[in-house]
Nucleic acid binder design. Structure first.
Lengths: 340, 340
DNA sequence: TCCAATTTTGGGAGCGCTCCCAAAATCTAT
DNA sequence: ATAGATTTTGGGAGCGCTCCCAAAATTGGA
């Protein structure tokens, strides 16, 4: 061991021990804030730690404790335009910020094409440098969830799983209720031909929003008019709206704000007026929703809170503070602006 | 060690060795594809590995090799609306995909408020569970870069650093040239009062785009008209454009597409026509640029390629295949549509 | 068949940490 | 001053891997 002690080269506990005149066990006790260290010793060790800017080797610690304080976020492939809709960026930001605040770091896993999906999922399941996982969508194979379970790797799903399973932790919002509330609002406005633009059939949240729409429509004895899915994109919303224009609808509930924004452009391009000719509503309440012309009526979902709850949930499991599985459904809120 | 050998519980090299009738050194040689293993032995070991679905403990490996195959991405705080402009989402996607394809995982670091910026930067510098770092913006203190250097932690900056420094690796695009080309295009269209909406004074890329604008303007003997920065947001572009409307400009070069889209909305709200009354141009060539009404003339920057080059660069350094620092400037391309 | 050269394989040691057990030091009461 | 109780501290061992050196096995030529 060379004599250059105050340098940016990495040190270990033995180095700190030697410099502060104690053993590495005592240094470890100071770092981990164990009791039974005299104040005098503690201060001396902390001074040396600060002086050489020591940071423990987390790989070595992980080898002993089997814990890394790392969580993964998996955003599955089919939401391939994951960032054209602000939902995922906001979620990612919320999860990362919450995890960092709780002393955890975050590994990001995206799948970009359907072809390499299995590769990435395999990598994620078997990756040994993270303690647990947040799966940011329900669009994953059952087999993937099963493999996580078999591996004993804790996970939380954002979105409700398709089947009840006692091992699955999840956080969701009231998608069905949101769809119901927005559609009912349009019914109360005495709209006669109310349509729905769904997002993605594979996604549970999309199906639930559509179920809410259908419940309100059937209660009113009206006909359901469902467009092809808009794939949660602006262009998709635009195209699906074009299909609806031929059907003389006077209101449309879109499964996301971004599709609503696209739909609005199609309405405008057809020379029609909102909300006079066609009322339009969305879901999410992204920042842009208030800035559209007219400002968008929408269902507010607490995306940042979703991320916080999912992160706090997985970390509670990893820190051993939660033993049973947890499920949490966050409330939505109808935001009435001018588009409907 | 219990006798339950085919289970999802984690195994180690000794387990695999016992099951395949060799030593843990031989198992390690097979896993790492070392030469000097007989084919018969290799097949036998691989069969057991597959049968119990064994994956090595990467923390233990890291302890020996001092290598984790993890890179970090840092998106600094000031781009706090990091995902309202599609630049960062696309970059993130590109980096994550490239890294995964090269057998690396990606840790995400965002700073969300100016207050905790120092905390997060401290965490990032000292975090021992990643080999290197991609810094996705030049908006970081010199002291942070210096600390990375002192730590010997390899990094690549996306964007040109403010000062030349032999230790700094970076990737950028031709921002100045892009600003110049777009402004020159407007000059050639015989626009008389050409303005600029910058993004963020702190950002080198923003200043460079403005420098390009100024070079073209000065070459044409025209007056520069510079709006308050639009902070790379749609609303910011809207507001900055409102300021410019009073100054009877007939063309505006915005430092990003998203600000151009906001500016277009302000122009439309003022009852003016594009490109007749005001020509508008942006930078980035995001997907939406082609879909605006009229379609946006812009400077195309290869965002996905930026991410690829940065990722390949940092991994080359980490794999020891590159010893000198590298700098790469990617070309931009003027995309002439209908807005200018 | 024997021997030297080459190939294949095994196991000690250590990476840097935490935990546990025991030694050493300190404190308090008699 | 002494002894028992309590607090503080030290060091062995092991987590799971890789590397290196040496032992064992194999091969080929004389």
């Amino acid at each position: 061991m060379d004599d250059e002690v105050v340098s940016s080269k990495h040190h270990n506990l033995e180095d700190i021990a030697r410099l502060s005149g104690v053993s590495r066990s005592t240094v470890s006790r100071v770092i981990n804030q164990h009791p039974n260290v005299s104040e005098k010793t503690r201060q001396r060790v902390l001074q040396v730690i600060d002086q050489v800017d020591f940071h423990p080797n987390l790989a070595a610690r992980a080898l002993v404790t089997q814990k890394l304080n790392v969580i993964g976020i998996l955003i599955p492939h089919i939401v391939s335009k994951v960032f054209s809709d602000p939902f995922f960026p906001l979620l990612l930001q919320s999860i990362t910020n919450t995890a960092n605040q709780m002393g955890y770091s975050v590994t990001l896993w995206l799948t970009s094409t359907e072809g390499d999906s299995d590769d990435i999922l395999g990598q994620v399941v078997n990756h040994r440098l993270m303690d647990g996982l947040i799966v940011a969508s329900t669009v994953v194979d059952e087999s993937f969830i099963q493999k996580l379970d078999e591996r004993g790797k804790p996970f939380v799903i954002i979105g409700s799983p398709n089947r009840l399973d006692p091992h699955v932790n999840y956080v969701d919002v009231e998608n069905e209720i949101g769809g119901y509330l927005l559609t009912q609002h349009m019914i109360k406005q005495q709209r006669q031909r109310i349509a729905h633009i769904p997002g993605l059939e594979k996604l549970r949240s999309s199906r639930d929003r559509q179920a809410g729409y259908l419940r309100a429509i059937h209660e009113a004895g009206m006909d359901a008019i469902i467009a092809p899915p808009g794939n949660f994109s602006e262009e998709g919303g635009y195209r699906s709206m074009q299909v609806l224009l031929d059907q003389q609808v006077d209101a449309v509930f879109c499964a996301s704000d971004i599709m609503a924004i696209g739909a609005m452009q199609a309405i405008r391009a057809a020379g029609l007026c909102m909300p006079n000719d066609i009322a339009i509503g969305g879901f999410d309440d992204i920042h842009q929703a208030a800035l559209t012309n007219p400002p968008l009526t929408t269902v507010h979902q607490p995306i940042l809170r979703l991320g916080e709850v999912a992160t706090e949930g997985i970390i509670s499991i990893l820190d051993g503070r939660v033993e049973t599985s947890f499920h949490q459904i966050l409330p939505v809120e109808l935001i009435i602006r001018q588009s409907a």
